[in-house]
């Protein structure tokens, strides 16, 4: 039997379009639409409870993390202050005035220029380093 759409090069017949409203109705009918009101309420309460637990858990974790972070920040600030104090102590103890004072306290006295002897060695040549050949 010869059909019109069997013709080579002939136009194909289009499938019949579903009715749009029926299609939408099918899509808007998930399973819980078929649940009764009691079951639906229980499910909703359970779902809300679950979400609340999840939220509270997250919040708890965030608060705990925040607390930890604050502790770390406080610790950092303390260490920073301690570091500043130490930097101050170091710079104070490295100051020439402090060193001179400490040396004096130890009983040291400045070198007397009059007792320093200057020896002049004529024709002195620089001594080559023993390990000079090892240097690149």
């Amino acid at each position: 039997m010869y059909r019109l759409n069997n013709r080579i090069g002939g136009p194909r017949a289009l499938p019949p379009k579903p009715i749009l409203a029926a299609k939408r109705r099918r899509q808007l009918h998930p399973f819980f639409f078929s649940m009764g009101p009691v079951a639906l309420s229980i499910s909703s309460v359970l779902l809300i409870g679950l979400m609340a637990i999840l939220y509270l858990t997250q919040l708890g974790q965030a608060v705990s993390a925040n607390q930890k972070l604050q502790d770390y920040l406080a610790q950092e600030a303390t260490l920073r202050r301690q570091n500043q104090d130490l930097v101050y102590v170091i710079s104070q103890e490295q100051s020439p005035e402090y060193i001179a004072g400490s040396a004096k306290a130890l009983g040291l006295v400045p070198a007397d220029p009059k007792i320093v002897k200057v020896l002049t060695i004529k024709n002195l040549e620089r001594i080559r380093q023993i390990d000079s050949h090892l240097q690149p």
């Binding site: 101050y88 100051s95 020439p96 005035e97």
Partner: peptide, 14 residues
């Protein structure tokens, strides 16, 4: 309350 304060460890030095 911590505050920044310029200090001169060398005292009168320079």
């Amino acid at each position: 309350e911590p505050r920044t304060w310029r200090i001169y460890p060398g005292g009168t030095l320079a």
